[in-house]
């Protein structure tokens, strides 16, 4: 890894097709800054992207990357990291990818606690399919497929992560460039599964959860006396239905990531030209 990596090294030569003003620009910039600040470079970084507007991020960043099937980005990231723990793995997707079609994988990826970072661009809407309700849309949010609102409570992704045993839970805002990059950096540095839910407004289809709304309502936990290592305090923030928070909400300092826990330390890509030493013992076992 070279020490002179700049965050723009993580930019590909493809111009984003996101709508002008889309929150995803800021979300991506913060991810790139955090990667550069933590000493990574594009050749040791693996980005896994989901499907949707957010899923295009793999195309606009420069690194090893896979843009996969809708909702399955987390299992891909787990496979990459377990197979080669030397890589920096970052998974990025949207609220539909992570909390709807991929909700099952989210819960289990959290439990598995593989040392990687999961950035969810939460705009509380389906953007690429032109404005339908997402799992984080408000109960009364009117869309083309829910003219009177979804009439079901939004998923609380922070609570879902906590219930599954998350070791790092954070929330950030794409428009607050510095704080967003700092929070993602803390997720990268966390020994285990670093989960960051990013408010990343959709300027085209969501006129409720806007930049102004988040600017006016967000409370930065860094400006309070919140202690992320205190699980009770974290629970109160997570279950606070009144206030939107950003910052590191919970971090388990005793977290032991998957590879370390299971003694999986080698780069699995490296294998001999023939059967491994000791393979004949496998045959003898069948006597």
């Amino acid at each position: 890894m070279s020490s002179d990596v700049r965050f723009t090294d993580f930019k590909s030569d493809k111009q984003p097709t996101w709508c002008p003003g889309c929150g995803d620009f800021g979300t991506m910039n913060g991810m790139m800054k955090a990667l550069a600040n933590t000493g990574n470079d594009p050749d040791n970084t693996f980005v896994v992207a989901g499907i949707g507007c957010s899923g295009k991020i793999g195309t606009y960043m420069h690194s090893y990357a896979l843009h996969g099937v809708h909702g399955r980005a987390l299992p891909v990231g787990c496979g990459v990291k377990i197979a080669n723990p030397d890589l920096e793995v970052m998974v990025a997707g949207g609220d539909g990818d992570g909390y709807s079609i991929g909700a099952g994988h989210f819960v289990h990826a959290v439990r598995r606690n593989v040392d990687m970072t999961y950035v969810v661009m939460d705009n509380r809407i389906y953007g690429l399919t032109k404005g339908q309700a997402s799992p984080t849309s408000r109960e009364d949010f009117e869309t083309s497929t829910s003219p009177d609102g979804p009439k079901q409570p939004p998923v609380n992704p922070l609570a879902l992560a906590h219930a599954a045993g998350a070791t790092f839970i954070a929330q950030s805002f794409s428009s607050d460039a510095q704080r967003h990059a700092e929070i993602v950096q803390e997720a990268i540095e966390h020994d285990g599964f670093g989960f960051v839910n990013v408010f990343s407004p959709c300027v085209t289809f969501n006129d409720v959860d806007t930049y102004d709304y988040f600017r006016d309502s967000l409370v930065d936990l860094a400006e309070t006396d919140h202690d992320p290592s205190d699980e009770q305090q974290a629970k109160e923030v997570i279950m606070d239905g009144e206030t939107e928070h950003m910052g590191v909400i919970y971090q388990d300092d005793d977290s032991v990531p998957f590879n370390e826990l299971h003694g999986v330390t080698e780069n699995m890509a490296e294998i001999p030209d023939g059967a491994p030493d000791g393979a004949m013992d496998l045959v003898r076992e069948f006597y």
């Binding site: 099937v69 299992p75 891909v76 197979a83």
Partner: peptide
């Protein structure tokens, strides 16, 4: 998808 990820990593 995990198996795919590991294969992308070269395993």
């Amino acid at each position: 998808n995990m198996a795919l990820g590991a294969a992308r990593a070269g395993a």
